[in-house]
Design a protein around this nucleic acid. Structure first.
Length: 794
RNA sequence: GCCGCGGUGGUGGAACUGGUAGACACGUUGGACUUAAAAUCCAAUGGGCUUAAAACCCGUGAGAGUUCGAUUCUCUCCCGCGGCACCA
């Protein structure tokens, strides 16, 4: 009896799989395609953590399963290689990010291969490779040509510790997503992608994808659509007017004052002489506040009167115009009509500054923001407020419109380790895009990494001196680089045609492989990568660079999305170096082997739930594999058939893989294994079927045992077994007997008779236990659920 | 504050469209093997009551409701996690 030695067999098969290129996806294949994708990792110098194998094992199981089901599976892996950690490391150590990244990628690749994952390494890509970022820059140019990339001066998020601007999506809780430093607002000239032009399309597309509902909701909220009206208020004694956006034009008669955001352009123009000092003081103060302080709900609202008055277009009454930083300049028009009777913020403000409050909806509450009947509004009285919305807007010459919270995507970064923005500034011609033939704009090596608030590329002698593509005069390059999320917003397209030197990917290959059928990764990307990638994909489709003539093409890159749940430390806390509760997957592989690690991570719990690591529990799956290993000694031409349980297992494992129920699939295989272990002999054909369904989970062991059984070809060339419907039928059925819904007895009955309710009732009534509980009570009613239970109501 | 997800034994977790709650595994206890330990194998293992078993009762965060029957559906509340955060 040979001992189970995972270290020995795993290395052997990993080498073999690589050598035979068993998992290369064939562009020429006639089979139905299946695109199975992981969110590619940032290759950090720390190597893999246990979270990586969780998602990777899941997609590996699905990939191997789908191949055996007859699909041509494309299952690529690559590196999201640009980014801050490598650059920050360079600042400390003076080691070039190129070097660190190269090393980290090598480590990651080795670790990933030691897990026995079936990637198609011919398609490996790295976003920091000029071959790749050439096309990232090309995509930038296409957006630029079509007015979807533009530069503007705006109040932007600035992280003082990273010394760079950040996109809206990268500010979390008022802090930098990377370093957790407080983000401040700065007026800077920056590059944007016009995501707002796609707000509605991004919303619509969500209807067509098979994504977890919470992620869809998060995106919906992030895009933040509201329908309302734009209404203009003229200003008393001025030529100007103030445009506001409101979702409640029905409450216009209750608008008793107006508020401008401190940044609103009219503030300086309309402020009266008497109020000037006060207003300026207020503006100065609010400018100093961070975004976090300004949006702090717990804080009392503040504001100051401008001295000017507007005319309510419905009531023709003069209403005061205030400045207050509870109104945001970045949303709507940066100005509001305040209806204190029906908006809590306005109510709070009006009470504090003793402003007029007029109710225009029928309600007993002081401040009521719900629906209802209109009052105090002339001819609109008694109308339903939803009808009044349209009518009142029309009366005052307003316009029904839609607003979104989504902002344009700020993509420029004042950092080195990213793809340079392919723009040239010429004194004569102004902003000039780099010519396509001059791509890629390569990163220079001669830079000083210390961030000083401008891109390190400024310091490169070789980089920014360039001739203007238009006039040939001396010009200088844009020194900012692109947000790494730009690089990762199209990588799934490059995998389809990774070596193409003429295009980012040929249409033929895109047509062959896109869209991604299954996408797996963490939920933290809900409002970042997953919005950006959808945006870029839609743009490329609209511009005609991606054409797919499939019937079910919904202009979405990712059909099905699955989020893996975070793995916590053994102390039920988030794993972190400072807590010292980090588990290194290498250690687990060293002790138990890759198959055990894979199985364990899949067995831990529900795939998408958060779950704690438990080193002791690893033994359980190791024992299981060990038991499977020893089953080989029982294989015989003679034996007892395990057909029923085997075929039930085939059914359950197949169904569970499809619905990401890996934990229950494994538990079913454990049940089968325990059953087979109890036998003296098992049929070879039964054991082989079991090995096939085990193989996506524990590929090394399955492959090794398959070979030991005398098979010459890889187990992964086998077809996935079908279960036999006749064999999964049980001969006997157990019927639960309940009295008033409480379990009182169980009876066994031949499966032939499960439809015969009368027979079952008779059997039940014959039971002593049943009789005891019925006693002298009268049977009122009997419910029978076929093959399951009989409930007697007394 | 708003939106979402969740709360099941000592632990991780199962439970199909409302139908045996606790599958599978860890741990624990007892036993076998061993000079011994590890490993392995066998058995028991939600709580109460009981010397033990049988029998019975209780039990899926709390309370109510719908139902013949609720972990599953509805309402109210409590707790944990995630997202958003003055979006007019």
């Amino acid at each position: 009896m040979k001992k189970y030695n995972p270290q020995k067999i795993e290395g052997k098969w990993q080498k073999k799989w690589l050598k035979t290129e068993s998992f290369s996806a064939l562009d020429s294949s006639k089979k139905e395609k299946f695109y199975c994708l992981d969110m590619f990792p940032y290759p950090s110098s720390y190597g893999l953590h246990v979270g990586h194998p969780e998602g990777y094992t899941a997609t590996d199981i699905v990939s191997r399963y789908k191949r055996m089901k007859g699909f041509e599976v494309i299952h690529p892996m690559g590196w999201d290689a640009f980014g801050l950690p490598a650059e920050n490391f360079a600042i400390k150590s003076h080691i070039h990010p190129k070097e660190t990244t190269k090393k980290s990628i090598a480590t990651f690749k080795k670790q990933i291969q030691s897990l026995g994952l079936s990637y198609d390494w011919d398609r490996e890509i790295s976003t920091a490779d000029p071959e790749y970022y050439k096309w990232t820059q090309w995509i930038f140019l296409k957006l630029y040509e079509n007015g979807l990339a533009y530069k503007k001066k705006a109040a932007v998020n600035w992280c003082e510790s990273c010394k760079t601007v950040l996109a809206n999506e990268q500010v979390q809780d008022g802090k930098c997503e990377r370093c957790k430093n407080i983000v401040v607002q700065k007026d800077l000239e920056q590059w944007f992608f016009k995501t707002t032009a796609y707000a509605q399309k991004l919303l619509d597309g969500l209807k067509h994808v098979d994504w977890p509902q919470p992620i869809k909701l998060m995106q919906e909220n992030w895009i933040g659509k509201s329908e309302g009206a734009e209404i203009e208020f003229s200003i008393s004694n001025f030529q100007f007017s103030i445009k506001v956006f409101t979702t409640r034009p029905d409450t216009l008669y209750g608008a008793t004052y107006m508020v401008l955001a401190p940044e609103h352009e009219l503030v300086s123009k309309i402020t009266s002489q008497e109020q000037k000092k006060e207003v300026e003081k207020y503006l100065k103060k609010s400018r100093k506040k961070t975004e976090l302080e300004r949006t702090d709900l717990a804080k009392e609202k503040t504001g100051v009167f401008t001295g000017a008055y507007a005319i309510n277009p419905a009531t023709k009454k003069k209403i005061p115009i205030w400045v207050a930083d509870y109104v945001l300049s970045s949303y709507g028009t940066g100005a509001i009509m305040a209806v204190p009777a029906h908006d809590e913020r306005d109510f709070e403000f009006a009470k504090k500054y003793k402003l007029e409050i007029i109710k225009v909806l029928d309600s007993s509450e002081d401040c009521y923001s719900g629906e209802g009947k209109i009052i105090n509004s002339d001819e609109f009285n008694d109308l339903d407020n939803n009808i009044a919305k349209k009518n009142i807007t029309e009366k005052v010459g307003g316009k029904l419109t839609t607003q979104y919270k989504l902002k344009d995507w700020l993509i420029s970064r004042q950092r080195y380790w990213g793809a340079p923005i392919p723009i040239i500034y010429c004194e004569k011609c102004g902003e000039v895009p780099v010519l396509e033939k001059d791509l890629p704009v390569e990163l220079p090596d001669d830079v000083d990494f210390k961030p000083k608030g401008e891109s390190p590329l400024v310091k490169s002698k070789t980089f920014h001196q360039v001739k203007c593509p238009k006039c040939g005069q001396d010009a200088r390059r844009e020194v900012d680089t692109m947000d790494t999320f730009v690089c990762s917003s199209w990588y799934y397209l490059r995998y389809c045609d990774p070596h193409n030197e003429k295009e980012f990917a040929s249409n033929e290959k895109l047509k062959k492989w896109m869209p991604v059928d299954l996408y797996v990764g963490g939920a933290e990307h809900a409002c970042m990568h997953l919005i950006y990638a959808r945006f870029i994909y839609k743009v490329l489709k609209d511009l005609g660079y991606v054409k797919i003539d499939e019937k079910a093409d919904h202009n979405e890159p990712y059909q099905k999305l699955m989020n893996q749940g975070m793995i916590l430390g053994e102390d039920h806390q988030k794993m972190s170096k400072s807590r010292g509760n980090v588990i290194n997957p290498d250690d687990v592989i060293k002790e138990y082997g890759a198959d055990t690690l894979r199985l364990y991570e899949m067995f831990m719990g529900t795939f998408s739930e958060v779950k704690p690591w438990d080193t002791k529990s690893i033994k359980g799956v190791y024992r299981f594999l060990d038991r499977v290993w020893h089953l080989q000694d029982k294989v015989d031409a003679q034996g007892k058939a395990v057909g029923n349980i085997l075929h039930k297992t085939i059914k359950k494992v197949s169904e569970d893989i499809e619905r990401f129920g890996f934990n229950t699939a494994i538990s079913q295989m454990m049940i089968l294994t325990n059953e087979m272990s109890a036998l003296d002999k098992i049929y070879k054909s039964d054991f082989e079927k079991f090995l096939i369904i085990l193989s996506p989970f524990a590929p090394h062991m399955a492959e090794e045992l398959w070979e030991l059984l005398g098979n010459k070809k890889s187990i992964f060339l086998e077809r996935w077994p079908d279960y036999d419907k006749a064999l999964i039928q049980d001969k006997e059925a157990q019927i639960i007997i309940q009295i008033n819904g409480k379990l009182r007895d169980k009876i066994m009955i031949d499966a032939k008779h499960i439809s015969d309710q009368k027979r079952i009732e008779e059997l039940a009534m014959a039971s002593e236990k049943v009789q005891k509980f019925i006693g002298s009570n009268k049977v009122k009613k009997i419910f029978y659920v076929k093959g399951r239970l009989l409930n007697i109501v007394v």
